[in-house]
């Protein structure tokens, strides 16, 4: 006990020093822990994002084609409605993907 007080270390008996010391150690630990977490988060999210882009695009094309086909059935104009619908569906699918990418990059910017 007497030997300890001779050193340059923070005084353990002073509550405020102990708290500050604890804060310092805790924040250092948290920092390294968060860095570790981020490392593991990236690939998993990438997998989910890839799936999301895939469905967004596929669904756009499918819905476009379905609407075109329905118009064909009503007006008896097969195959022109289907063709135009699929064409527009590609556009809608691409727009879905662009929107998803924009929104995800905005969120990534906000998080970092």
């Amino acid at each position: 006990m007497i030997m300890m007080s001779n050193r340059d270390e923070p005084d353990r008996s002073n509550p405020e020093d102990r708290l500050a010391d604890f804060e310092k150690r805790l924040s250092a630990r948290l920092e390294s822990r968060n860095a570790e977490d981020r490392k593991y988060d990236r690939p998993r999210q990438g997998w989910a994002i890839g799936l999301r882009y895939g469905t967004e695009f596929m669904v756009g094309v499918l819905v476009g084609a379905a609407i075109g086909y329905l118009i064909d059935r009503v007006f008896d104009t097969l195959p022109f409605g289907l063709l135009i619908g699929t064409f527009l569906g590609f556009g809608a699918g691409t727009m879905n993907v662009v929107r998803a990418a924009k929104e995800l990059s905005e969120r990534a910017l906000r998080d970092n």
Binding site: R52, V59, G60, V63, G85, L88, G91, A92, M95, R99
Partner: peptide
């Protein structure tokens, strides 16, 4: 002429992409 149908299709595709995913 092109953008509005695309927006409509994009809107209609939302519930499907939401549920299919």
């Amino acid at each position: 002429i092109i953008v509005t149908p695309i927006e409509v299709i994009s809107f209609l595709s939302r519930p499907i992409s939401l549920s299919v995913r």
